[in-house]
Amino acid sequence: MSGDVRLRREFIATALLLVLLALVPLVTRDVYWLGVLVVSAYFAILASSWNLLAGFTGQFSLAPAAFAMIGAYGAALSAAYYNVPPIVGLIIGTGVAGLIGLVLGRIVMRLRGPYLALTTLSFAEIARLVASNSINITRGDLGLPLEPWFNDRVIWFYVFFGALTFVICGLYLLLRSKAGLFLEAIRDDEIAAARSGVRIVFWKTAAFAISSAAAGFAGALYAYFASLVTPELGLVQQTGLVVSMTVIGGMGSLIGPVVGAFLVYVTSEWLRDVGGWQLVIFAALVIMFARLFRTGLWGLVTTALAPRRRAAGRPA
């Protein structure tokens, strides 16, 4: 099966999932559960953007939460000091995260595997420490308050679903174009990709910048939703959640991170009532998936649905 067909099928499945979830407000207008879905959508954007980097380009960054935090501070600081309207704050947050991602991506170009993981982890910690210690500017751990953009949960719900749909469509268009081919080629073998004439520096940096911008976009949007920005957004544990969601859902597929984000976050809210062991369970699940089913839930589903045709093959 061609990569095109695979990608289109994943896109259709994602679209169906999003349509189904978008119907939730018709069933319930419960503020708490709509809030849970909003946060899930936030994580779905983060996980999808990280997946572009880790799953499609092979750059295993440990900084997605840091870029979300940078985006959130971009919006909150410009609102606090220059009083910009939310839509401008959103653009600033996205842009700042994208620019920093561009620079970082260019700098870490040559690093791979554990080296890249360590470098991006350090970058994330530095960003968080700076945000938390620059008290005169960011108010440190107290956080920066923001005027809420909307007050109605249902509106917020649709705003986040709109944002997620936008990101997914963007990723689909990107991956369907020749960029998708080049990124996967770079992931599989950089030297072979260069031999074939792929501009390695350009595409790797572009992937880093796009992924960071998308994470920053999610962070900025979340800042207006939560109406408070704290350095906690950039905690390594948040990155841990993003990685967990992607691995459980299925790394390297368009739909995997979305499924993973909703499944993990909604279940964890639900499990919160039964003792709060959710993080232990998810961490164990991640290890199990990484060890036994590297293609995640989506991989399991595709194998189960097409056992004969793919008998000789590895699942999607």
Partner: peptide, 17 residues
């Protein structure tokens, strides 16, 4: 080669690049 891409896509990389 690109082991996680299918054979056709392996060829397409060079052509598109």
């Amino acid at each position: 080669i690109f082991p996680r891409m299918n054979v056709l896509d392996n060829l397409l990389v060079g052509g598109r690049a």
